[in-house]
Amino acid sequence: MFSDSFNQTTVTFFFIKGITDIPELQTVFFILVLLIYLVTIGGNVTILLLICLDHHLHTPMYFFLANLSIVDLSSSTITLHKVLLMYITGDHTVSYLACITQMYIFASTLGHELLILAAMSYDCYLAICNPLRYHVIMNCRLCTLLVAVCYLMGFVQVLATNHHLLNFHLFITKELNHFFCDMVPLMKITCNDTSFLEMMILIQGLFFVTLIPFILTFISYIFIISAILKIHSSTGK
């Protein structure tokens, strides 16, 4: 924590440095980022359209896959749209509130993705271990509930850290050494004590984002592997 108030600055906006400040590479990186974004958008929109239009794909597995595509679209758009706008307009500034919002949505999508993958593993478990009861248990209501819980947990698990960040207003510089608003680059330039925030991020990252989805997925696949090993015939396996 910095005690010299002369070097502290209260900011209302940040200047995002971007991927590179070399003029000769600006166009190359713009084209590269644009291509990555278009491929991401095209692939995920294609998946969503196919799932919506083909009634044979109106199953729990493809319902979860559609939500994974939505999460991927959100994650890509919230990070890459600002990069593209910076190259087009030349404006590298972003307001403090917009920066915090971008961090919140991006961190939430990471949780959404892992939790939806855990829900998909549960769907596989029911399909393999309880095939006769699968369609009764994994109905439309349960699928919707599982996805809703995944989204809710993803949004809730980053509330505390982002609320804590809202109290950070003193910074060494306004320049953010990254291509979008992320927590670690922001913490590097703040004058506030970040020890409590670092502990919160560690708990959130290890427990809520990683450990819970991993345990749920791991348990599901342990049961799946166990059920497959109990099948004696190679055809059945």
Rank of each mutant, 00 (worst) to 15 (best):
Ile70Pro: 00
Thr101Met: 05
Leu110His: 03
Ile88Gly: 09
Tyr96Asp: 04
Leu65Val: 12
Met120Asn: 10
Thr101Asn: 02
Asp54Asn: 14
Asn67Cys: 06
Leu117Thr: 04
His92Lys: 14
Leu84Asn: 08
Val94Ala: 12
Ile78Ser: 10
Leu115Tyr: 05
Asp91Trp: 13
Leu84Glu: 14
Ser76Ala: 12
Leu65Trp: 11
Met61His: 10
His58Asp: 09
Tyr96Thr: 03
Thr101Gln: 01
Thr101Val: 01
Thr79Asp: 13
Pro60Met: 09
Asp72Glu: 04
Leu114Gly: 01
His58Pro: 05
Ile78Ala: 12
Leu117Ile: 07
Leu57Ser: 04
Leu84Phe: 06
Ala98Thr: 03
Gln102Phe: 08
Thr109His: 00
Val94Phe: 08
Ser74Thr: 08
Leu73Cys: 06
Phe106Val: 07
Cys99Leu: 07
Leu68Val: 02
Tyr62Val: 05
Ile116Asn: 04
Leu117Ala: 08
Val94Lys: 11
Tyr62Gly: 01
Leu53Pro: 02
Gly90Gln: 08
Ile78Glu: 13
Met86Gln: 13
Ile100Gln: 04
Ala98Gln: 09
Leu80Asp: 05
Tyr62Cys: 07
Met120Leu: 12
Thr77Leu: 12
Ile88Val: 13
Glu113Asp: 13
Tyr96His: 14
Ile70Phe: 15
Leu65Lys: 07
Lys82Gln: 14
Asp91Gly: 05
Ala119Asp: 03
Val71Met: 07
Tyr104Ala: 03
Lys82Met: 14
Thr59Gly: 07
Leu97Lys: 07
Ile70Val: 14
Phe63Leu: 11
Ala107Arg: 03
Ser121Gly: 13
Met86Ser: 10
Ile105Phe: 12
Ile78Leu: 10
Ile105Ala: 05
Ala107Cys: 09
Leu57Trp: 07
Leu84Met: 14
Pro60Glu: 07
Tyr122His: 15
Gly90Val: 02
Cys99Ile: 08
Ser76Thr: 08
Thr59Met: 05
Leu115Glu: 00
Pro60Ser: 07
Val83Lys: 06
His92Ser: 08
Ala118Thr: 02
Gly90Ala: 03
Phe63Trp: 15
Leu53Lys: 03
Met61Ala: 14
Tyr122Lys: 14
Ala119Lys: 01
Ser95Phe: 13
Ser75Leu: 10
Asn67Ser: 06
His81Glu: 15
Leu110Pro: 00
Thr93His: 15
Thr79Tyr: 15
Leu73Tyr: 09
Leu115Gln: 02
Ala118Cys: 08
Met61Asn: 11
Tyr87Leu: 03
Asp91Cys: 12
Glu113Cys: 10
Ala98Ile: 03
Met61Arg: 10
Ala107Pro: 00
Ala66Val: 02
Ile78Lys: 13
Thr89Gly: 08
Ser95Tyr: 11
Leu73Gly: 02
Thr89Glu: 12
Leu117Lys: 06
Phe63His: 10
Phe64Ser: 08
Leu73Thr: 06
Phe106Cys: 01
Ala119Asn: 02
Phe63Arg: 12
Met103His: 01
Ile116Thr: 04
Asp54Ser: 05
Phe106Ala: 10
Ile105Lys: 00
Thr79Phe: 12
Ser95Lys: 12
Leu85Pro: 13
Pro60Phe: 06
Asp72Gly: 03
Thr77Tyr: 15
Thr59Phe: 06
His92Phe: 05
Leu110Asn: 02
Ile116Pro: 02
Leu114Arg: 06
Ser76Glu: 06
Asp72Trp: 01
Ala98Ser: 07
